[in-house]
Design a protein around this nucleic acid. Structure first.
Length: 322
RNA sequence: CGCGGGGUGGAGCAGUCUGGCAGCUCGUGUGGCUCAUAACCACAAGGUCGGCGGUUCAAAUCCGUCCCCCGCAA
């Protein structure tokens, strides 16, 4: 569906923060949509020296000289500011803030949300990670008309894709970003022309997922190899998976930048978390099979291929991880 | 001023506290063994110990300063 003259005149407010939001904003700009304002999360202090971190959406908006708003809260002032902009449509993608009803109802064509899951499954933040962690075989992107709940609005369009068994968050989120952007562009004109029907979400199928935090990357070796691998896929490259290794009497954090699954033919009985040599690789025992540690990073050190890590830490083999 | 770890032949590490011959595993090269090998044996090459300054008869090691890398936290 080509963009009509009507859609290019639409006054659109875009709200988003993450990399997915960036891809979507970029494609809207590329198609010459009239983005009159961009809302994104306030800058946060980040990094080792508490430097101010600017969201990718913000720098993109800045580049295109679009007015940027970074409210902490949607109070009266912000709401009246939005009304003054007179938007015809609000598009929200991974923004990270809940919008009051008054804002949602300001634009004549409503407020659309792009969500990277097959709603009503995986409502809430981090839908991509949670789909991977759950070992889902398919996911997708959903366009919905926002209401006051979190991802509970009526669905106007949905598209599925398959999840590759070796997909990580990195590969899947990239794919979903592109898909979501393309899908949104296809459907905006249809929505404007009233060709899309609203469909209520099936509440009995709804699941809600939490925001991913660093500590979610903790590996528990009494889980199955498949679950551990799924966790790695979901959390690569951020925040990554880790556990602890007792070395020289101190407990050190150890991250796994890459792990893989491999059938372990040996019949030795091992404890969960025990490190052993499997041919020329490093295996770690789980509740059932072993996982292979391919790239390892000890706290304070750079990440290393398993073979190099062993050169400097031969006592790693035989130790039991926590 | 958020907390912490680190920089040592090509790679990964020990040595620093307590100053005194530059060490380990791996890689590389040469030779040997082998039907053969990511195997094994022997030998060898390869270092401004992150930079600068200070203390000392003597500094990888102690003091000062700067640069770079990383983990946590946010």
């Amino acid at each position: 569906m080509p963009k009509t003259k009507k859609t290019s005149k639409l006054r659109i407010i875009f709200m988003g923060t993450s990399a997915l939001a960036e891809v979507i904003l970029e494609s809207l700009l590329k198609e010459k949509y009239n983005i009159v304002a961009v809302f994104t999360q306030p800058d946060k202090k980040a990094g080792r020296k508490k430097e101010l971190k600017i969201s990718p959406v913000k720098s993109l908006a800045r580049k295109h000289k679009i007015p940027i708003f970074q409210p902490e809260k949607f109070d009266e002032d912000v709401i009246s500011e939005i009304k003054k902009i007179k938007p015809d449509l609000i598009i929200v993608a991974a923004y990270g803030k809940i919008l009051p009803k008054e804002v949602l109802e300001t634009p004549g064509f409503g407020s659309l949300n792009v969500h990277a899951s097959l709603l009503p499954k995986f409502r809430g933040p981090s839908p991509i990670q949670n789909a991977l962690m759950a070992g889902e075989q398919e996911t997708g992107t959903t366009l919905m008309l926002m209401n006051e709940g979190i991802d509970t609005g009526d669905i106007i369009a949905r598209k599925k894709i398959k999840i590759n068994p070796n997909d990580t968050f990195k590969t899947l989120s990239l794919e979903l970003s592109k898909l979501s952007a393309k899908f949104l562009l296809e459907n905006i004109p249809l929505w404007i022309e009233g060709k899309l029907k609203r469909k209520k979400q099936d509440e009995t199928q709804a699941t809600f997922c939490q925001l991913i935090e660093r500590n979610d990357g903790r590996i528990f070796w009494n889980e199955t190899a498949k679950n551990i691998y799924n966790k790695y896929r979901a959390l690569y490259p951020w925040p990554g998976v880790f556990c602890f290794w007792e070395n020289d009497g101190s407990l050190k954090r150890i991250k796994f930048q890459k792990i893989s699954l491999q059938k372990d033919s040996s019949q030795d009985k091992r404890r969960a978390g025990e490190v052993f040599q499997l041919k020329n690789k490093i295996g770690i025992q789980t509740a059932d099979n072993a996982v292979i540690a391919d790239i390892i990073q000890l706290e304070g050190k750079k990440s290393l291929a398993a073979k190099e890590f062993i050169n400097g830490h031969p006592d790693f083999i035989g130790s039991v991880l926590e």
